[in-house]
């Protein structure tokens, strides 16, 4: 199974790449020679320094708390471009070609310290101790709360809301609590809600998966993927409220604590 044009093309691209990016490439390579596989700079002091660098070099896109903006949310603990220390290093060093994510000329030490901080961002809730009873919270989650209708944990449950398998690592207690009582307070861009009213007058609600000036793509409340041309519907409303109901009234203070404790205990594999 071999095809020579393929091989030729690859070689060709390599040569082109070498010619075009030679200088920068070489410098990068020399500077990062003997890159260790895991981060040698992970002390509290390193994280603190990393935080400072992050605010200076990264926050304008990724947000001061890593919550995302022009850049992706870095608090999820999941990395499309690879989650090993080495991979994170290379992502930050080289940037993500073809996107806004730039590479950086910071020193190796500085990059490692930023990685230490980025890791901490990805584990926002990891070190806190919750007050409630996680076991009781689990029963509420699966029973009265009806949360699995919209959320998955370890692969079980709906996909209208975010996967909660690792939510305990990703989110601080304060944030978890806020998610329950005031879900609209912070909605990740990929979970923005919209309502489409068709010319016949029927209403479709769902999560906005994609949109441009001429069309909008939704996951409706039943989980179906839907696409609408904007000039073929009566109205498209992007909502400020979350599709998730507020549980402020539905749960007592103790119940909320229990739920938060349960969410905080979720630290499994994604």
């Amino acid at each position: 199974m071999r095809f020579s044009p393929g091989l030729l093309c690859c070689l060709f691209l390599l040569c082109l790449g070498a010619a075009a990016g030679q200088e920068g490439q070489e410098r990068t390579v020399r500077r990062d020679e003997n890159l260790p596989a895991s981060n040698p700079y992970t002390s509290a002091a390193d994280v603190a320094k990393g935080h400072q660098y992050f605010l200076g070099h990264c926050a304008q896109c990724h947000g001061p708390e890593g919550e995302g903006g022009r850049g992706v949310n870095l608090t999820t603990g999941r990395y499309r471009h690879g989650g090993s220390d080495r991979e994170l290093f290379l992502t930050v060093r080289r940037g993500v070609p073809g996107t806004e994510m730039p590479g950086t000329h910071l020193s190796q030490e500085e990059v490692w310290r930023i990685i230490a901080y980025v890791r901490r961002l990805g584990q926002a809730g990891a070190e806190e101790k919750a007050a409630g009873d996680a076991q009781a919270g689990r029963l509420l989650y699966e029973g009265k709360g009806g949360c699995p209708a919209c959320h998955a944990v370890n692969g079980r449950g709906g996909t209208l809301g975010p996967d909660l398998t690792q939510i305990g690592l990703r989110r601080a207690l304060r944030f978890l609590r806020e998610s329950l009582v005031d879900p609209g307070a912070s909605i990740a861009p990929e979970y923005r809600a919209a309502t489409v009213v068709t010319l016949q007058g029927s209403t479709i609600r769902g999560v906005v998966l994609n949109q441009d000036d001429y069309s909008i793509q939704l996951r409706d409340l039943g989980g179906e993927l839907r696409s609408f041309l904007k000039n073929e519907v009566r109205e498209v409303q992007i909502q400020k409220e979350s599709l998730m109901p507020s549980y402020r009234a539905a749960f007592s203070e103790t119940e909320l604590n229990d739920l938060v404790a349960y969410l905080n205990s979720l630290r499994g594999e994604p």
Partner: peptide
Amino acid sequence: AIDTRTGRTFWTYHHP
């Protein structure tokens, strides 16, 4: 997953 009318994506999955 792409809408065949507009070419817009519904979702993307990345396998590392």
